[in-house]
Design a binder for these strands. Sequence first.
DNA 1: GCCGTTTTCGGCCCGACTGTTTTCAGTCG
Length: 565
Amino acid sequence: MLLERIANILELKGENTFRINSYRKAARVIGDLTDDIEEIAKARKLTDIPGIGEGTAEKIIEYINTGKMAKYEEIKKGISEETVALMQIPGLGPKTVAMLSRELGIVGLADLENALREGKLKGLFGIGEKKIENIIKGIELFKTSQQRISIGMAYPIVKRIITGLQHNSQIADIQAAGSLRRMKETVGDIDILVSGANGADIVKAFVAMPGVTQVLASGDTKGSVRVEECVQVDLRVVSQDEFGSALQYFTGSKEHNIHLREIAKKKGFKISEYGIFQGDKKVGGTFEDEIYKMLGMDWIPPELRENRGEIEAAQEGKLPKLIEFSDIKGDLHNHSNWSDGIPTFEEMAAYAMKMDYHYLAVSDHSKSLHVANGLKEEELLEEIEEIDRLNKTFKRFTLLKSTEVDIKADGALDFSDKLLEKLDVVVASIHSGFKQGKDKITGRMVAAIHNPYVNIIAHPTGRLISKRAGYEVDMDKVIEACLETGTALEINCYYDRLDLNDINCRKAKEAGVVVAISTDAHHLDQMWMMELGVGIARRGWLEAKDVLNTLPFEKVKAFCMKKRR
DNA sequence: GCCGTTTTCGGCCCGACTGTTTTCAGTCG
């Protein structure tokens, strides 16, 4: 994003920090938009977006029209991207990078490492022994632990730690904070917050837990470890009357907290991790919700705390009543051992019933997907018979006859309508031709959506968080087609997919498109990931009524049949 | 650069830590 780059360069140049921040803020709000920026520009409504004023609006219009931004072209002169990137090294901020560049002509990481080796940093203004040591450590850290991990990895770790510590009699409250509590799709490190009497004892118990591979710090109020999965986990101990404010503070997001503190200031309050204050007098902090209440708004669920309009909604009492895991009645996309899954139908049904589901779809792959052992027509017919037979043995549970039918490279479906008609619910998805252009892929998907038997489009963008960006698809057109035809879009819960993501999910909701939250489980022990999908749905402002699989079986069936008429 | 139930000018979130330039700037979350 160009505006973000401008912010970075201005920072390096030592510009006014408030100006830098406003470029950053503008970049962020644009990234969070659910509407098309060009449409907004065309309607001359850019300055309606909070954080975008006349100046930025002009720059955006210039960029849309010419593909360039004069401001950016002007300030980037003589500054290399590599130099800007040096600011990402922990401990190196804009001042130090600018000074190193000025005094030693350092451009990028290689230069910096050479200068360090040759001892050139010694004697520079503001640089001592310790500082040099910290830069070396920072580079090391930058190289090794740069990447964030999927919430799907972090979530079980936190559950394990919290369960392990819960029985500790010293602990009064324990909660995960940070981006994990907000259910962000990736997390950097894991923050756990505890209140209790004896901090040192609690921290000792924490660093001695099974699974800990390295203890980074162990004190009276904070412990920091690395666990098997190579993630850093921080545990902080606070007093009970600070737990609420500390939880609020450490949950973030940073942008949400900044906005909240601005409001607090205007109302004569001050909030920090230690509490909410009026002058020097502490007026709250034990409970998180009292902070929001004192600021004149409803308590905001953590998943919404991204400064994407949730604060305004809370002030007006208009927050959505977010979907909860307990609203989920079933799972509409799963694989059995008939294609590339592990469990049998019986095992799937038993597990689903244990999860209190009312139904579960068996949606094995279709014939063209050889790598996934896709079912041939006659095999799907057999599968249908087998499921019908099994369903007679269940009392208050139904296995749904389904398929994950391939949308082939030419846009045709992999099974005939005649066959699809025999199913309860049809999931369709793209598994090939990822490199086709945006129009082609969008065309394939829209064609599938218009098929009267297709009910759900699975993993609509095809992205894999750790591996690939996904194919190019015009989500606006897909959403439009779904709305027109009564087709649902999936939030795929598999931890590496989480596709739709939060922003697209909100986009779908705003358009009025129904969303299905499905695990795409191939093993029984992937079915818990429904919790991740619900988290993404909550981040997308979804309520139970927006989600297909919160409905009882009859209504899901009615949703599918309606399209066939 | 943005913004306004105190302001169209003068503000713009809070606190901790660290190292170094001994009173505070730089960096971080």
